[in-house]
Amino acid sequence: MPSTRFDIFRYQPDVSDEYYRQEFSLEHTEDATLLDAILDLQNTQDPSLAVRYSCRSAICGSCACKTNGKTVLACTSQLESLKSEFGDDRLAVDPIGNFTPIKDLVVDMEPFWTKFKSVKPYLIPDGPPPEKERIVPKEAMQKIERESACILCAACYSECNSLAADPEFVGPAAFAWGYRFAGDERDGQRKERAKLYSGDHGVWDCTRCMYCNERCPKGVEPRDAIEKLGGIAFQEKVTRDKGARHAKAFLISMRTGGKLNESLLVPYTDPLGAPLDISFAAQMMAKGKAPSPIPHRIKKLKEVQGLIKNVKETI
């Protein structure tokens, strides 16, 4: 029977305000999961060890935690696979990141739920309800299929680099749900949602670190949802945010030369702030890092201009 050593984050606020770590060792079956092990430790070695869980089947989204720094669902992560992945017989177990621990592996999910609710994660159709059910073509539902699979486990939120720097960022899971409804053809709030999601700490705060896509245990790929919400903002002409202006500068560059016109990017993104940053611009210029304002022009630019004109978006 295999055995595993654990180095577990502990926080028992009833006893002490200090965080500490505790070593455990456990014999277990070949196919035991991390959740099996935590529950076994709770039952046989330390009944105070706290963990949040419910379904044990990757449906409820309760048991996400970090092992050796990587966020996983404890119920679907087998110990032997984890040890082999990390090349280590000892597993560090921590609560998910970007949250405040309440007790051991249990965190305060309140900020997550507040942000989730803020995106209006429900269908808001236009007009009165029809007499019969709304028939939606299969293709229309396939567009939002991935996002519909989100179980709100917060694995994406746990390692979001934007959130680590800006705790008010709405975050990947909420925006996946945002697209799940903004992209639903029965919803009547496309423009309103584009406005709601484009504000401070909104979709344009995403730094594209791709951790959310990497960590999601259900293949939701929240970063792709955020990207699609950006696309909807463009379709609905909600493009005043600096992030949207940044993307617009790329589109203008593409049309006028085919390559990024870096000299356009700064003033176009932040027309009010850029002129105030003269000393930085001067430093960049002194190092030859201020590019020519005359855009580079690629060969066959007409092809590109034709594509910009022709290609239709299907977000």
């Binding site: 990207e227 463009f234 589109l251």
Partner: peptide, 8 residues
């Protein structure tokens, strides 16, 4: 950025 504005 282009992907975020016009994915296709």
């Amino acid at each position: 950025d282009i992907a975020e504005a016009k994915p296709n």
